[in-house]
Simulated scan of single mutants.
Amino acid sequence: MENISSSHILTVTALNDWDWTSRILFFSFALPGYLLTIILNATLIMIIAFEKALHEPMYIFLCNLCINDLCGITGFYPRALTYLLTERNVISHEECIVQGLVIVIYATGEFTSLSVMAVDRYIAICRPLHYHRIMSSFTVLSLVTFIWVFSCFVGLMAISLTLKYPICRHNINKLFCEHLSLLNLACKHDIFEGIVNGFIFIIMSFLFVFVLLSYLKIILACRKSKVSREKFFSTCIPHLISFLNTTCGLSDSLYTKFNIDTLSHVEHTFLSIIILTVPPFLNPLIYGIKLGPIRAKILYIFQRPKIK
């Protein structure tokens, strides 16, 4: 294995066409967005953690999703905000690798968490009498552990692949580092890279098809029962919106892998940051508004000072 030197300085070119006014304007939206995303996710985590009535599988998985979202935005926003305030958009190779690892773990964790949540909803609606027996505390703990172990495994495998090849280019065409961008810097490519990336693609495709099949069975089950339909609209719609939103965000990987140039530089930059900014912001909003117990708790928190 040819290990590369860690002394390389990489240049982020995503903001090359942006003037200072555009940078400040985007920063004025990005910083409040970052802080608000932290507040929304942290609030949902604390509500679920401190409210014993919410210590159920669905809410535990939701809490885990919010924790994963906080990890993702922490890996993206601080460095992106720094780029916006400085005209020297550079990052060391070591920092790029660390950021790439965090972002791959986040993206994999997001998709895996939503897949596990689809399993939970399938059992709750299609096999309600066996739900508490199947989704025991041990099962929930095992699934949460699987989400993080699997995400870390995929992240380490993907980033280790980028360390195999020496780099000949030093321009990152995104606002952040991830393993496909790092692979595009390599001097050469071989069949091993294709095997690893193919393995990751197959896993993600399997999870995607698995969720779609789960929801197909849920929809078929809802046709037979009014109670199931109510449960679907109250608990499944938020999850389905989050899943489709994350899937659309992952489409940027295809542009990076195949160097597709159908989009302008600015459009590609915005497309690439969708998965890192939109799901973490929308997830707590969607679930907080749609899920009755969480909505009730939020309303109680804000109305209590008025009652006093």
Score class of each variant (00 low, 15 high):
Phe270Ile: 05
Gly249Lys: 00
Leu244His: 06
His268Asn: 13
Ile273Asn: 02
His268Ser: 12
Gly249Val: 00
Ile260Asp: 09
Tyr255Trp: 11
Leu271Val: 06
His268Glu: 08
Thr277Arg: 02
Val266Glu: 14
Leu250Asp: 05
Val278Ala: 02
Tyr255Gly: 06
Leu276Trp: 01
Phe258Gly: 04
Phe270Ser: 00
Ser251Tyr: 10
His268Pro: 00
Thr269Cys: 10
Leu244Ile: 11
Ile275Thr: 07
Phe270Pro: 00
Asn259Gln: 15
Thr269Leu: 14
Cys248Val: 09
Thr247Lys: 06
Ser242Asn: 07
Leu250Gly: 14
Ile274Pro: 03
Ile273Asp: 05
Thr256Gln: 10
Leu254Arg: 09
Asn245Tyr: 01
Asn245Val: 06
Ile273Trp: 02
Ile273Tyr: 04
Phe243Asn: 04
Lys257Thr: 13
His265Asp: 11
Ser272Arg: 02
Ile260Gln: 05
Ser242Met: 04
Phe270Met: 03
Leu271Ser: 09
His268Met: 11
Ser253Gly: 14
Glu267Asn: 13
Leu250Trp: 08
Leu276Asn: 04
Thr269Gln: 09
Lys257Val: 07
Asn259Ala: 15
Ile274Met: 12
Ser272Thr: 05
Leu276Ala: 03
Asn259Lys: 15
Asp261Tyr: 10
Thr262Val: 15
Val278Ile: 09
Ser251Gln: 12
Thr269Ile: 07
Phe243Asp: 03
His265Trp: 06
His265Lys: 14
Leu271His: 10
Asn259Pro: 06
Ser242Cys: 07
Leu276Met: 04
Thr247Gly: 06
Lys257Tyr: 11
Pro279Thr: 01
Asp261Gln: 15
Val266Asp: 14
Leu244Trp: 07
Cys248Leu: 13
Tyr255Leu: 13
Ser272Cys: 04
Thr247Leu: 10
Val278Glu: 00
Thr262Glu: 13
His265Met: 09
Val278Tyr: 01
Tyr255Ser: 08
Asn259Tyr: 11
His265Cys: 08
Glu267Phe: 06
Leu244Ser: 09
Pro279Cys: 01
Leu271Asp: 06
Ile275Asn: 03
Ser272Pro: 01
Leu276Cys: 02
Leu254His: 09
Ile260Leu: 13
Val266Lys: 13
Asp252Val: 12
Thr277Gly: 02
Leu244Gln: 05
Thr277Pro: 01
Leu254Trp: 12
His268Leu: 13
Phe258Ile: 03
Thr256Asn: 07
Ser242Pro: 01
Ile260Met: 06
Val278Gln: 00
Asn245Gln: 09
